[in-house]
């Protein structure tokens, strides 16, 4: 069996040209912070900055493309979950995909949230469909906000 990352390289040779053909469901990564001092926050979307008036990005758009890369990591995680009929929550929690989402969230929260080492967070993957209730496809256990060993 070809390891997952090399499968992506293989797909470079077999491109798919279906762009923007389905907007039925949009995946979103959400988080909440659990603090001994202030309690648990509401669930909030991790990637929130979706407006810009920057004309220069037509030529150079590092931050916008970074957001797209981060969003594609969320997209892949949802696909991985949807394509696994025998979804094992514990197995996913130990997967590289989960670790990627965990690090993505921790990095973002480090910029947003100055907290004592004891604070923790949870992540969840939600599918949004216009006119339908949000569908939660995965919710994590509590995770340390400060990376273990740091």
């Amino acid at each position: 069996m070809i390891p997952g990352n090399w499968m992506f390289a293989l797909k470079l040779f077999l491109p798919s040209w279906n762009f923007f053909n389905d907007f039925a469901e949009v995946p979103r990564l959400e988080y909440c912070v659990i603090s001994e001092r202030t309690g648990t926050t509401d669930w909030k979307p991790l990637l929130t900055d979706h407006n810009t008036r920057d004309l220069g990005r037509v030529l150079f758009n590092p931050s916008g493309n970074l957001v797209l890369l981060e969003a594609s990591l969320v997209d892949r995680a949802v696909n991985e979950l949807s394509e696994d009929p025998s979804f094992d929550r514990n197995r996913f929690a130990k997967s590289e995909t989960h670790s990627t989402l965990e690090r993505l969230t921790r990095t973002r929260l480090a910029q947003l949230h100055s907290s004592p080492d004891s604070d923790r967070f949870r992540i969840r993957l939600v599918l949004l469909e216009p006119g339908a209730p949000d569908r939660i496809v995965f919710t994590s256990e509590e995770l340390p906000l400060v990376r273990p060993g740091k």
């Binding site: 040209w17 923007f20 053909n21 907007f23 949009v26 979706h50 810009t52 957001v67 797209l68």
Partner: peptide
């Protein structure tokens, strides 16, 4: 592919794209 998607005929697809809260940063 778009031809087969009703949303591209009735404007819903482009509307969703322009109104979306991600992943694209839309020009305000």
């Amino acid at each position: 592919s778009k031809l087969r998607t009703s949303g591209w005929w009735n404007g819903r697809a482009l509307q969703s794209l322009l109104m979306s809260d991600g992943p694209y940063r839309v020009f305000t």
